[in-house]
Write a protein that binds this DNA or RNA. Sequence first.
DNA 1: GCAAAATATTGCGTAAAACGCTATATTTGC
DNA 2: GCAAATATAGCGTTTTACGCAATATTTTGC
Lengths: 294, 294
Amino acid sequence: MDYRPLNHFLALADHLHFGRASDACHVSPSTLSRSIRQLEETLGVTLFERDNRHVTLTREGQLFHAYARETLEQWQAMQATLMAETRELAGEISIYCSVTASYSFLYRLLSEFRQRHPRIEIKLHTGDPADAIARVQAENEDIAITARPRSLPDALAFKPLTTSPLVFIAPRDGADWLPATPETPTPSQWKDVPMILSESGLSRDHADTWFRAMGVSPRIYAQVAGNEAIVSMVGLGFGVGIVPRIVLDNSPLLDRIMILPVKPELPHYDVGLCVLKRRLKSALIEALWAQLPN
Amino acid sequence: MDYRPLNHFLALADHLHFGRASDACHVSPSTLSRSIRQLEETLGVTLFERDNRHVTLTREGQLFHAYARETLEQWQAMQATLMAETRELAGEISIYCSVTASYSFLYRLLSEFRQRHPRIEIKLHTGDPADAIARVQAENEDIAITARPRSLPDALAFKPLTTSPLVFIAPRDGADWLPATPETPTPSQWKDVPMILSESGLSRDHADTWFRAMGVSPRIYAQVAGNEAIVSMVGLGFGVGIVPRIVLDNSPLLDRIMILPVKPELPHYDVGLCVLKRRLKSALIEALWAQLPN
DNA sequence: GCAAAATATTGCGTAAAACGCTATATTTGC
DNA sequence: GCAAATATAGCGTTTTACGCAATATTTTGC
């Protein structure tokens, strides 16, 4: 069943802005424009009054709005009824995430899901989050738990689970190469600090950006794959690292490191589920996906 | 909105036979098979149990059946509501006219009308204009585009679209039986000219009147139905014809014929819409009728 | 018992539809 | 006056739907 036109309509009714509504629907503005136009032609009425600056709902659009919401609710209720009727979906879903994410999110994500769908097997693969997007795109994995990339490819859908800041960490024992005043960093303080960084990925991008803004090149002691490895090396006294704060929440090494109160702070980023849009047709994947609020 | 899968489902639920259900839906059995399969995959349930000889509705299929009917009913109700809201007309109008009139007038008559009333279907029948009045009177057609009859029956209403003269046409190549001086016709010039005339209708009436005024009987080579046929036969050299000048405006045979400058000229006549007055009560017909100025 | 008929499904090539990029026209804010 | 923002449309590409033909299986008629 293709209810996309109703989704498109509701998004536009909500946003009253083609750009924002198209973003919300994961389509281009031209696709949304045509979809709405086609719906209007099918119905023989104008649903939105619009020029190139304003979008408002017409009276007919308001009538249609109620219809669209009810229709989608009934469709979802029908699906839920059928699912209940058959007692469950069955099959397997493969999930890729970092060790950290597996500690932090999987229980929350899956505990209710597994109760609801005991016949669905979860295949969990852990690894460097920097690989997550690529593995989903290559269809090695159904879903990944990963940071939202700066530029999300069009074929992917993303749903946030949480937000986490990136933080600088240092050995708790201290070291003479630590910046004296991390709250007021200067190039001279940071130019000789040995840095333990990711090889790639969002945290690496943000680290590079921070140092560029500082006007200094980081002195890279090691580039490693995986935030846990960074925590390990920092805990062993090899240097300063940058990791998502959530990595620390479950780390057995927490007593070996400290968070540096560096200013300006590194940005927060979303951690969430990432999936190929077209895989959402699968009832299994859609069921997992649908568990999270939008 | 694409509700075809629901239509497919309901047809199969009704027929329990892919061949008959696909016929009912105007699709091939393979299309129906795939449509049902896709719906089942989307819902994650089996709607029909089937082998190559039997189709039965599953329990989930029965649940879905109620949903499908209600959904289509609500869609139709929504459309009806919106139509009532905008006073949108829907239905069909049948129009009868000659091929010539279809070329000359339909675009002008219908293009704006169709934009204004996209839900009205036009059924177009073409034929000899001499039949137009009779077909309207017999209610075979709602409206006709035709010449104004000399005596308009009281039950009919007529609205002019344009005026056209009747003209004599001859083969461009000439012929020895052509009148030497069509501007000053004499009975002797015309008595042997082979004439290609309509079997009936206004142009035939006017031709008969002209020849009577000339004091000669036309030598009729052929009586044919349809002005285009007359143009074809004249172009092939069979004789002289009388047709409305607008017939020539779109004729591919224009280079094969010439208009004879006959005096006295045949009269002009109105071409326009003709309809039974009492059919104007119909909102559909009134809408089309009202487009033309009085 | 066997061939023919009937039936639902699937592979495959083609047609149709959907899509996004880019260009366009218009409006707004500075 | 001009840059930015916005909705729409042209166009080429991608994706999806389609039907034909082949297939496998079952049923029916002889």
